[in-house]
Each structure stands twice: as structure tokens, then as C-alpha cells.
Design a protein around this nucleic acid. Structure first.
Length: 922
RNA sequence: AGGACUAUAGCUCAGUUGGUUAGAGCGCUACCUUGACAUGGUAGAGGUCCCCAGUUCGAAUCUGGGUAGUCCUACCA
């Protein structure tokens, strides 16, 4: 074995073996356990969020697989309508300088499929690098025939039930992408703008009103002006008419509660066709809808000629100028306002009147709310349930049609009268409706991507067929997801699944945090602070990293800044830490309810941990290979105290890990594994094994027991750690399994360790604790008194109880060896000790004679420090115990504990004080 | 405007139903090439648990009020 762990040599080889051997497939036996991957965009690539999320799912999957469950992790990808279409459109422009319109629908879709074939494998390849173990043979894509069939079925069914309908109303229109988008796809951010105050003259010439607006251009579509009914200033105006400037139209003044008298002038211009609130007001007062925009958000032919063809921005300028010129511009004020933009296009969204398809979300929401209320679905952490409820209880109907080409085309056909027929195919529609050969035209729109993702838990399992997989693995066990798609995806999955399967899609929703950079910033390409999980696995040199981060930046100005920051943060680039270190880092940071700042210090620490495991294995193999490790089932071995101790500690660790995984506390689980392997197995057990194995006088039975324990505890710890760090554990396991009496092809198919209470040995633990505190005491004296670690020293033991003496006798060779002692001599009660440095092990004093080794003043200083500490401790506890309230009200056990602590502290205080006086007097 | 979350060592984070000497990793200091590992070992320094008040015998932990930060939802033209 190499002296250091080299992950890159082994990871790919091991992964290929796993996948080719079919180990990722469900075993077909045991309790079903299933997880559906949140399908990433098919043409996307792996980012840190995926890395985090998929590591968690893989831990759960590997854990349950090893625990004997019939485990399915279902992989797949999403067609990501808008995102993918945009990418391909951009490529068309760059390569051939054509638009999709020039190309035509069918040819364009073909291009998208080409692109999907070409780049669709990227993210799944990267997932493999992460060690993910989904059943790739079952990989699905949301536009596969089977899933498309499910989509069609759901659409037709919902339509027949009246839960999908077509309607004309205001939608969020993206003037760049030329499609409607749902409320969720609109992001509103505060931006600096202006508030314009315009004077609108009354038609009868008797005066005017002043309206305030942030969108002057919409005045072309005004149909009335509204005031608050209780606003005394404007009582007389209600019912009068206004001559709308530049438009040759008169519009009425109406009274409506919507208007806040305090805001602006208290007079609001109402544009029902271009504002959601105005739409409502318009409905209440029976106002017409005057649409003044084209699909590009340019002024259309309904508006006065002077403005036609202008963009929104141009029209705004022109109209403000015209008001100014007409003397009707009262004032302009700077004003902060929330501007709605499309999450994909980034352009300002226009409320626009169109025909769209809607899902009656309110009806579907009711059972979905109940499922969470009743606990059929539980969120972890629980507080997300509030978010879910808040949204679900105020749900608007879901606009599901998109004016795109890439996606599931809506299964609706129109005849020449414009009458709509919904069905699974044109043939079905024709025959069911007796349409003969009347011309039919299919709806041009496609469905929102989230419509198909909403069916993911059951469509991937073959629905609407009642497949065996569907029966076995649905409902799924847990959904692992980020909070950002609770509304987009989780809620809609719950609604759809309850409606069509009459059961929940999953029992638990584990909501994890966002992965941020070391400074807590969101990682984004435009900030140039993105870390690629693959770079953390393989490493990357600084120039390549800078190149990667600075290409494709939106603002060229950022380039220098990003480069500088990157070079400062990673002067040497990024080292190759390996997959296991990366996974362990994610997991150790995965405490609930909080975002994670990715800390490079952590991943380096866990790379070192991998190396530690590797070298521990080297030591174990050196001492077991070619030796009798009692692996043949013979009973001719004897377990030492250390053996019993480490076996006992292992049981505790197994318990902790099991509890932690079942409560999704991967940080606790990974820490327990880390501490066991490093602080107990390596730091103490391996050291304790040396005196046994290296001493020619040790009985063979004891050596066999030690070898057996060395190899078996290592082998068990590997299985315990395997879900967390799959590669290194497999690599080592293959070398140790036979010696440990295990067979089997792969660690990932081996049984997960289960704690056994009989192996917990409190006596062994107490004895080793005694031994450790003895050794630690000596080491502290050595460390603080600058005695060379290797220099053998004699120690004297004062006030040793019978138990101390028997422990000493039982462990003297270990003790002498680990503490590098010359001798350890028990003093009789009347014996006088020479001047010594002191360590306390319980009541026993361990004395290191100072002669020639220790400076008197140094030891005095050391004792003083100890004594001061103890003094404070004594004062603190006795204060507590003298408090009548404490003694009267605290539980007896707590009081008893305090008394014991006080006694121990007082004793130590007294002993060290005497020792101090003794040294001082010499 | 409403709501959620966060605040603990220089940095990144644990701290289970109130009872610890408040912990880990990284970083820092000193010493150590001891036959698994310098990606290591041993010892050590380092904390007003954001602030104020309250409940309690006892508060990092519970309550109220602040402060700072992050995020979500809804928005006034």
C-alpha cells in the first residue's frame, strides 16, 4: 500500500466495478426503501448544491441498502423547458445565426434533442464521480415516452374533471421569451425609479385631478381614475369624466376601497389590461380592458398613432415629454419600487391579457394541506411546514401553458370554429367527438416543466400502468430537496400524487440548506465565486481556475476583481482532495435548518482523515497479514482489556450513528465516525496494541486476540463509514475482509453494523479511562516541564487504592511502554517521597521525581496554575451547595453530583497544596 | 408590511427535554524524523455564549424587548 492515500487511483476503477456488477439495483428483498432524485436539468452540470444534496441521498441509499432494505434510488433528468430552449436558441445564433422561428418548430425541436444527446450525459457522469449509487438502469427523462404518456393522461383526466380549464386573463408575460410564466417564475426586486405626477383635466373643463404613477406609458390604456370613497377631498369628483390626454377618450372617476388616500395624491389611474390590481378595480366597475402592448411590449395599434411601434421605454419618455410640453407634468420624484422580472430572461414582466391553460390549484390543495396537517407527510426541519401552509392556503390557480416549443405539447385541438377538444391524440379526439375529417389544429403551447416534474414519484415507476415497481416503491420514503423549490415542486408533487395515486408521494421531506461560499455569499457565475465539486475532487491549478471563473462573466469589469479574489483565496489552486473527503465535508456541515458556508479548512481536514484511515489500515495489515487472527472461528484467543474496550466503544458509536441517520443528523453521524476512528481506534487502541504485539513475551492467545480485534474492528468501522465515504472503505475492505472472516463481493452489499448490548463493557471502559488519565498525567508533566518525550522516567505512586494497585499490576507493561516509564513504584503509606512533580489520577498521586529533570520554579508555577483553577472550582461548587434554594429544590441526583465534584476538587486542591508547600520548603 | 432563520474560540460549526470545567475541525504557540501516518504525534494558549430585562435554586439553553445579518411571502399607483 502507498504511504499516503491516493484517491484518484482508485475511485473510477471501483465505481465502474460497482455499476457494471449491478450493485445499485434493488435487491428485491427486505422492506422497500426508495428515494427519487430531484431531476437536474438534463443539459446542466453539477454544482455544489447538487453535490450536497446527492451526497445526502447516497448516504441514505447506501445505509438502507446495507441495512437490508429493498432499496431504490431512482435517477433521472428534467427537460427544463425554458432553460434548455434558451441555451439552444443562443447556440443557433452563435453558430448559424438563425433563429428558431426561421428554423421552424419541428427542426428546432430536433436541434434540442441533438443537444440533449450531446450534453445530456454531463451531469450523470459527474454524479458518478461523486460516488452516487442510483439504479442507472432505471434512469428516466421527463420527456421519455412513458413519462410523456403520464403527462398526457393527467392533463386529459384533470380536464375531464374540470380541474384544468382554459381562460383569458392577465398573466405574467415575458416580452423577451414571448411566453407566459407562473407567479413563481417572477422575481421582484427593489429598484430605483421615479414617480410622475400628471394632471388629468376634467372633461367639463371645471378643473383637474393629479394622478401619480410609476408607469406613465400605461396611461394609454387607462379606463378610469379611482379615489377612495371616504376621501373627502374628492367626493365631488366621483362620477365626473376626465378627458384623457392625447387619447381622445373620456374616462370616469370612480370610488374604490383599493385606493389608499394617504399615498401619492389619492387619485389612481386605472389600467385594467396592464396591472393586476387595476384589473380587479376594473372588474368591479365594469371597465373595458384596453390592451396597448404587442407581445414584444411595444405600443400597438390601439393606441394613438403617435406612439405606435415605440418600445415601453421609448413610449414612457415620449409621454412624459408630451405631458411636460402640455404643461400637465406636475412633478417627478425619485421613487423606489419593486420591479418584476422574469427569472430566466431578466426582463421586466408585463401583465398581459392572453388565453392560457390553468390548473384549479385550490381544489387540489385541500387534500395536500391535510396530508401535512395529519402528519402523513412530515417536513424536516418542521418549521418548513409553516412555509408550506402559508403558501398552500393562499394559492392562485396555476398557469401551466407556455408559449415555447420545447416541452410536452398540450393535448388539445381546435376546430375551425375555435372549439376546443382535449384528448390523448388527434384520432381519439376525432372519434370521440364525431369530427370526421374536419380540420383540427393542435394547441401550439407546451406545458410548464413543473407539470411533468409534479408526477415524478409515480411517472418514473411506470404509472399509469400498475407496475410491480410502482406497487413496491410508492409512496417513496423521503424527498431530499432545497427550500427554494418547495413551492415549484414539492407542493405540486403532493397535490398531483394525492389526486392520482390517492396516496402521498413521500413520507418525509428533508429540506437542506443552501451551499454558499466561504464568505457566506451565494455561489453564482456572475459573482465568479463558484466552486465546482469536481475540482475539489480532482484538484485544479490556479490559472485554470481563474480562467474558469472569468469566462462568460456578464460584466467585463468584474474580470479583474474575480481574478484577484480567486488568486488571493487559492494562491496554489485547489488540491485534489478526493470524493470521500468532499462527501464527508458536506455531511459534517449538514446540520438542520441552516445554510452551509463551504469551508476549505474542513475538506483538507477530512482529506487528512482519509489518510489517517489509510495508514491505520496499513498498520493493521502489517500486523495481521500472514498471522493467525483467529478468523477461522477457533476460540483459541484471549481478549485484552484494550480489546474489550475498543469493542465496547464501537458499540456506542454504532448506536450514535444509527440514531443520527434516522433523524437526518449527518453531522452527528459523521462526527461520531471521525472521533471513533481517529481519537479512539487510532490514538489509543492501535497504540495499546503495540506493546502486546511487539513483546515477545506476550502469550500467543493474547496476540491472536489483539490481531483479531484489530482487523475486525477496522472491518466493522469501514462498513460503518461506507455510506459516508464509499471509495476508501471499499478499497481497504477488499484487503481486509478475508482476514476479518468476511466474504462478499463488495462492502456496499455487506451488512451495516448493528450495536450489540452484550459487547458493551463498562468495566473495561472504566479501566481504560484510568489508564488514559494516568498516561495523560505523565504526558502533561513531560510536555510542560520539557522532558524529552522519549526519555524514560521513574514514577512513584502515593495513596494508591487496592483498585489502583490491581489496575497497575494488570497493565504495567502497557503503562510503562505508552508513558515511556522506567519504573512505576507504589509507595507505602509511611514512605517519604523525594521532591516530585505531581499528577492526580482520582485519589492517587502520580509522582515524577524532579531530580535533574525538573526545574523547581517551573513545577511551582505549574502547580500554582492548577491550584488556582481548583480553588475557583471549589468556591463555585461550595457556593452552590451553600445556597439553601439549590439544596431545597434541585433534584437529589444533581445535588449528589455537585457534592462529589466538590469532594474531588477539594481533595485535589489539598493534595496539590501540600505538594506545593513541600517543594517550596526544599 | 407579514413571517422564518441565524448570532457560541481568529475562521467554519456542534451543544439533544435548563444542572458541562461550554466542545470539534482549521488556524496559532512549543516540543518531537518513536518501526501506520509530518495529510503525523504530544502538550498548550484562546470564549462577556450579540445586548438588556425577566422566569428559576440554577439560563448558551426558556420568556419578553432590542441590535445585526440572511432569506421567504405580499405589496401602494
Amino acid at each position: 500500500m502507498d504511504k499516503t492515500y491516493q484517491p484518484q487511483d482508485i475511485e473510477t476503477r471501483i465505481y465502474q466495478n460497482w455499476e457494471q456488477s449491478g450493485y445499485f439495483r434493488p435487491s428485491g428483498e427486505g422492506t422497500p426503501y426508495s428515494i427519487m432524485i430531484p431531476p437536474p436539468n438534463v443539459t446542466g452540470s453539477l454544482h455544489m448544491g447538487h453535490g450536497f444534496q446527492d451526497t445526502i441521498m447516497d448516504v441514505l441509499t447506501r445505509y438502507h441498502r446495507m441495512a437490508g432494505c429493498n432499496t431504490l434510488w431512482q435517477p433521472g433528468t428534467d427537460h427544463a423547458g425554458i432553460a434548455t430552449q434558451m441555451v439552444v436558441e443562443r447556440q443557433l445564433l452563435e453558430q448559424g445565426e438563425t433563429t428558431r422561428q426561421e428554423l421552424g418548430r419541428d427542426a428546432f425541436i430536433e436541434k434540442v434533442w441533438d443537444w440533449k444527446e450531446k450534453s445530456g450525459g454531463t451531469i450523470t457522469k459527474q454524479l458518478r464521480r461523486l460516488g452516487a449509487s442510483p439504479d442507472w438502469s432505471r434512469e428516466r427523462f421527463t420527456m421519455d415516452p412513458g413519462l410523456s404518456h403520464a403527462v398526457q393522461e393527467v392533463f386529459v383526466e384533470l380536464y375531464n374533471e374540470g380541474l384544468i380549464y382554459r381562460g383569458q386573463r392577465l398573466v405574467n408575460w415575458d416580452p423577451k421569451l414571448h411566453t407566459a410564466i407562473s407567479d413563481l417564475e417572477v422575481v421582484s426586486e427593489e429598484e430605483d425609479g421615479f414617480m410622475w405626477y400628471f394632471r388629468y383635466p376634467l372633461a367639463d373643463g371645471s378643473g383637474d385631478v393629479v394622478v401619480a404613477t410609476t408607469r406613465p406609458e400605461t396611461m394609454l390604456g387607462d379606463t378610469c381614475v379611482a379615489v377612495n370613497p371616504d376621501d373627502e377631498r374628492y367626493q365631488d369628483l366621483v362620477g365626473k369624466e376626465i378627458a384623457l390626454p392625447f387619447c381622445q377618450r373620456n374616462i370616469p372617476v370612480v370610488a374604490d376601497d383599493y385606493v389608499d388616500a394617504e399615498f401619492g395624491t389619492g387619485c389612481v389611474k386605472i389600467t385594467p389590461a396592464h396591472d393586476f390590481n387595476d384589473y380587479e378595480v376594473g372588474q368591479r366597475h365594469d371597465m373595458p380592458l384596453i390592451n396597448i402592448f404587442t407581445a414584444d411590449a411595444k405600443i400597438n395599434e390601439v393606441a394613438p398613432e403617435a406612439y405606435r411601434g415605440l418600445t415601453r421605454e421609448e413610449a414612457r419618455k415620449q409621454i412624459v415629454a408630451d405631458f411636460d410640453e402640455a404643461g400637465l407634468l406636475v412633478k417627478v420624484e425619485p421613487h423606489k419600487l419593486k420591479v418584476p422580472r422574469g427569472d430566466r430572461s431578466g426582463v421586466v414582466i408585463e401583465p398581459w391579457l392572453t388565453d392560457q391553460w390553468y390548473v384549479d390549484a385550490k381544489t387540489l390543495a385541500k387534500p395536500a394541506i391535510e396530508a401535512v396537517e395529519s402528519g402523513d407527510i412530515q417536513f424536516v426541519p418542521k418549521q418548513w411546514e409553516n412555509t408550506y401552509f402559508a403558501w398552500m392556503r393562499d394559492l392562485q390557480d396555476w398557469c401551466i401553458s407556455r408559449q415555447l416549443w420545447w416541452g410536452h405539447r398540450i393535448p388539445a385541438w381546435y376546430d375551425d370554429q375555435g372549439k376546443v377538444y382535449v384528448g390523448r391524440s388527434e384520432e381519439e379526439v376525432r372519434s370521440k367527438n364525431d369530427l370526421g375529417d374536419r380540420p383540427l389544429r393542435q394547441d401550439n403551447d407546451v406545458l410548464d416543466t413543473w407539470f411533468s416534474s409534479a408526477l415524478w414519484t409515480f411517472s418514473t415507476l411506470g404509472w399509469p400502468e400498475e407496475t410491480p415497481e410502482l406497487k413496491t416503491f410508492h409512496p417513496t420514503s423521503v424527498l431530499v430537496t432545497g427550500f427554494d423549490i418547495i413551492f415549484f415542486w414539492v407542493a405540486r408533487m403532493i397535490m398531483m400524487t394525492l389526486h392520482f395515486k390517492r396516496e402521498v408521494p413521500f413520507h418525509t421531506v428533508y429540506v437542506h440548506g443552501l451551499v454558499r461560499d466561504g464568505e457566506g455569499q451565494k455561489m453564482s457565475k456572475s459573482k465568479g465565486n463558484v466552486l465546482d465539486p469536481i475540482d475539489l475532487i480532482d484538484g485544479i491549478d490556479i490559472d485554470t481556475l481563474v480562467e474558469k471563473r472569468t469566462t462568460g462573466l456578464m460584466q467585463p469589469k468584474m474580470r479583474a476583481k474575480v481574478e484577484k479574489k480567486t488568486r488571493k483565496e487559492f494562491p496554489e489552486g485547489i488540491g485534489a482532495y478526493g470524493t470521500d473527503a468532499l462527501r464527508f465535508t458536506y455531511l459534517s456541515l449538514a446540520s438542520t435548518g441552516r445554510d452551509i458556508k463551504f469551508d476549505m479548512g474542513r475538506i483538507e481536514g477530512f482529506r487528512n482523515f482519509c489518510n489517517k484511515i489509510w495508514n491505520a489500515a496499513r498498520y493493521v495489515l502489517m500486523n495481521t497479514e500472514g498471522h493467525n487472527c483467529a478468523q477461522d472461528g477457533s476460540e483459541n484467543y484471549e481478549l485484552s482489556l484494550a480489546d474489550r474496550w475498543i469493542i465496547s466503544r464501537l458499540q456506542h458509536t454504532e448506536k450514535t450513528v444509527a440514531e443520527a441517520v434516522s433523524s437526518y443528523r449527518f453531522d452527528i453521524a459523521s462526527q461520531a465516525i471521525y472521533e471513533f476512528i481517529w481519537n479512539e481506534y487510532c490514538d489509543w487502541y492501535l497504540e495499546l496494541s503495540k506493546p502486546v504485539l511487539w513483546n515477545d513475551d506476550s502469550p500467543e492467545a493474547l496476540k491472536q486476540g489483539t490481531r483479531r480485534t484489530l482487523i475486525r474492528v477496522l472491518e466493522t468501522a469501514l462498513r460503518l463509514a461506507h455510506p459516508f465515504m464509499p471509495f476508501i472503505t471499499e478499497e481497504i475492505w477488499q484487503r481486509v475482509k478475508t482476514l476479518a472472516g468476511q466474504s462478499g463481493e463488495s462492502i456496499m452489499l455487506a451488512a451495516y453494523p448493528v450495536a450489540s448490548d452484550e459487547k458493551i463493557d463498562p468495566e473495561a471502559e472504566a479501566n481504560i479511562e484510568w489508564l488514559k488519565s494516568f498516561i495523560d498525567g505523565i504526558r502533561t508533566i513531560r510536555g510542560e516541564m520539557n522532558i524529552a518525550p522519549g526519555k524514560p522516567i521513574p514514577v512513584l505512586l502515593r495513596n494508591a487504592s487496592e483498585l489502583d494497585q490491581s489496575r497497575l499490576n494488570a497493565n504495567s507493561s502497557t503503562l510503562l511502554s505508552l508513558a515511556k516509564l522506567d519504573t512505576a513504584t507504589v509507595l507505602a503509606s509511611d514512605e517519604v517521597a523525594p521532591m516530585s512533580a505531581t499528577a492526580l489520577v482520582g485519589d492517587m498521586e502520580v509522582l515524577v521525581p524532579m531530580a535533574g529533570l525538573i526545574d523547581k520554579d517551573a513545577e511551582l508555577a505549574r502547580l500554582d496554575k492548577e491550584i488556582t483553577k481548583l480553588e475557583k472550582e471549589v468556591a463555585r461548587i461550595s457556593g452552590k451547595l451553600n445556597n439553601q434554594g439549590f439544596v431545597a429544590k434541585a433534584p437529589e441526583a444533581v445535588i449528589e453530583k455537585e457534592r462529589e465534584k466538590l469532594a474531588a476538587a477539594e481533595l485535589a486542591f489539598k493534595k496539590l497544596g501540600l505538594q506545593r508547600d513541600e517543594i517550596n520548603s526544599l
